[in-house]
Write a protein that binds this DNA or RNA. Sequence first.
RNA 1: GGUCUCGUAGUGUAGUGGUUAACACGCCAGUCUGUCACACUGGAAAUCGCGAGUUCAAUCCUCGUCGGGACCGCCA
Length: 583
Amino acid sequence: MNKYKTHNCGELNKNNINEEVKIAGWLHNYRDHGGIIFLDIRDHYGITQVTIPEEDSNMKELAESIPKESAVSIKGIVTPRPDNMINPKLATGEIEINASEINILSKVEKELPINVFPETEVREDLRLQYRFLDLRREKVHNNIILRSKIVSSIRRRMTDMGFLEITTPILTASSPEGARDYLVPSRIHPGKFYALPQAPQQFKQLLMTSGFDKYFQIAPCFRDEDARADRSPGEFYQLDMEMAFATQDDIFKVMEKLLYELFSEFSNKKINKAPFPRIPFTESMLKYGTDKPDLRNPLEIKDVTNIFKKENLEAFKNKTVRVICAPNISDKPRKFFDDMIEFATENGAKGLAWLKVEENKLNGPIAKFISEEGQQSLISETDAKKESVMFFIADEENIATKLSGIIRTELANRLNLISKDEFIFCWIVDFPMFELNDEGKLDFSHNPFSMPQGGMKVLEEKNPLEILAYQYDIVCNGIELSSGAVRNHEPKTMVKAFEIAGYTKEVVENKFSALYNAFHYGAPPHAGIAPGVDRIVMLIADEPNIREIIAFPMNSKAEDLLMHAPNNVTAKQLKEIHIKLDE
RNA sequence: GGUCUCGUAGUGUAGUGGUUAACACGCCAGUCUGUCACACUGGAAAUCGCGAGUUCAAUCCUCGUCGGGACCGCCA
């Protein structure tokens, strides 16, 4: 028999009545009724109520002396609760343990800095500083359990589909592209550094070249970039996967099966079935004003630039004009529209004109500047029904696109148009291979390792800005879970692509020497993707902040308040790794 | 790096140019044999983040500073 317990706190029921048992856990709550004392003992599995026999005054005194959240072990007889005292909220609600022995295993010696129960709100830095107490609280505790189950489900499903989990190095070489690296100084090689991988990108491509057909890994990734509510500073996990002799559709098929089944396993929300909609990048930017659209939002953006070219509206002249038509809101109070205008201007819009749709005409502040023909065109272009309201965004094209997206989301939120019990996945496809950077020079718009659609031929013949890549994102409810791509496995095409982006052959040879070299020895065509595990868990757990689904998260300034990282190291340690501090 | 925002008992909040700084949870003591967010009675607990300024008087107004958070930049 285990020294501390025969059963956990979630499993005893009326089948155990009259058994002598031991449970161990934390003193969750305490109710002293004078004659009778109730102790709630909580462990990872549940809560069991313990009663203290009235006649045993020593035990009563002992029980009264235990501070909440102390660790205890209790021996006693399982007894049925009186019929009218059954607690349906507890799995163990039919029984209680009549204590015969109480052992205090570890006492709480100070006042608790945060309430474990009842679960009141606590400021976040304090929660992180006392994460071991915070994690006892039901909500976060359950999130961590959920995360564990999701991760093991992912492993099982990937393995069942024939993928091999292969781990790749954590100490590797700094890579020139992308995010800032975390550097690790080398002791043996003065002045040289390892880097923590931003992703196992090159390793997984090398694995494909090594003849492994389907690879995956729950991969830790490290990027020295600032945090966001949905983005951990420093480190995060990806479901990294890659397939050899595979096309975009092969990746989509695997991910659609995985994501649909995974989300179905852990959520009761409605999920769209495969195939997920494939939306070309340019279409997404126009219709939704973003490359990560929330398809729960029924509002769509239309381009009406051409209609306004013929109209005499100064403010819209020579601008890109986009319209969002929201149904059944013409009876909203004036304040609703004023607030929307305020929101729009706060986000950088020059204004937000709006028009009510009436019987075959438009009504509102700018209606008099639009011809009857123009009004008809607007109504038919947006397919507007009576009592709709059209919102207009007019600006330089890029800004109009972005603003329309922001306003589309805000309108849907304020009008409560977004269903809370639905997951809608989609693919954004056909990203451009190149774009102009701020200095007006050509650069890779996403991943330099992506295969251009059409291969070497289009690189040689087409206007670079018109070349599309086999580059795709998977998006769910407006959250980008991942980018992926069919990789460029041909050395010559790689060199050409880099040349267009202004890099010499030497750059490819030196900076990506492992891949570039390997690809000369029979690299298979391959493709992959790497959805963020943290974001998947956030979506399923319905948590808006990433710290709620990570056991020991850093704060937004990339500090671990529990372990005090980063911290100072000794002069000796620095000397060994040949580092002099610049102060 | 920038913008916004928050900082008041252990915790979460309220509040005011002059107060005994309020409420809830927690804590301590007491009453109660059936509670399970027990109830009831009483109590302890706050240099109102820190510094400077304005003022007869600052927790409150101003400036600075420190700390937390959100967003922008950044995240191939």
